[in-house]
Amino acid sequence: MNTVTPVSPVRTRKKQNKFLRFLNSKKVVPFVFISPFVLSLLLFTVYPAIQGVIMSFQSVLPGQVEFIGMSNYERVFNPTFYRAVSNTTAYVVLTVLILTIIPMVLAVILNSKHVRFRTIFRASLFIPALTSTIVGGMIFRFMFSEQESAVANQLIGVFGFDPLKWMFTPWAAIGLMVMLACWRWIGVNILYFLAALQNVPDEMYEAAEIDGATRFQRFRFITMPMLKPIIIFVSTITIINGFRMFEESYVFWAVGSPGNIGLSIAAYIYQQGIQQNDMGFGAALGVVLMLIIFVISIIYLIATGTFKKGDR
């Protein structure tokens, strides 16, 4: 559709010209530009989203699809699901805290003119974001393997603790996934905060310094309020991505962690929908997950005052 040759004003081939002129009119052009996108959007996003809701009321077997009312949803609230929800919630709470506070503090440090090698530090912290969760997780498996000689056990050994079977201890299982995610995302979040810090005028700090504000007070009463929008942004995407977590769980236990200590909601969807071929039930889980994400995001955004007018 983009092979239209430029219309030269000299050459006048009546019929063809009319069509080309139509294609080239300012009313039509934008629709030509967006049409492939709209088509794929309808096919690959809108249709599956609707289909997902429909499927959640169906029993889906090859060549045999029937509506079964709410019974998929009735099955959703079972002990395994609660386990997945509690794992995922713990993961979300921890990642949100760590991935908001630490990058903010590090960005403030990196933003100070007194710190040297800032570009090197920034790049080093960013590099983990280039690895895939699979490769990163594989490295973590070797660092947190159960032998006494593995890095993690050597470290806790210094403090007199016995070697731990990290991948088979419930609290450590959550910890592994949290650490993996934080390791990969801290550098990216630092960049968000650094960008926001560029917008804090130096004069504000100078004025505060003249008024005798301490370093901490300057951070608390100037930096933090100025960073509020980006804090909300970073924590919101961390919440959303946290509830969708799948790979961090998969890389440690594939889909079968002992006692489901590493099962996330998304992993549960994969397990039921794809592995057990129970697509209707999987779709119902997907709808529930979407509702959870939606409700929590809204509550969070209201609580942080994002929707209040005039207060950004």
Binding site: G52, R244, I265, G273, G282, A283, M290
Partner: peptide, 9 residues
């Protein structure tokens, strides 16, 4: 829209 709801359809 989370990918997980689109995934199965």
């Amino acid at each position: 829209v989370p990918f997980e709801i689109l995934m199965l359809p």
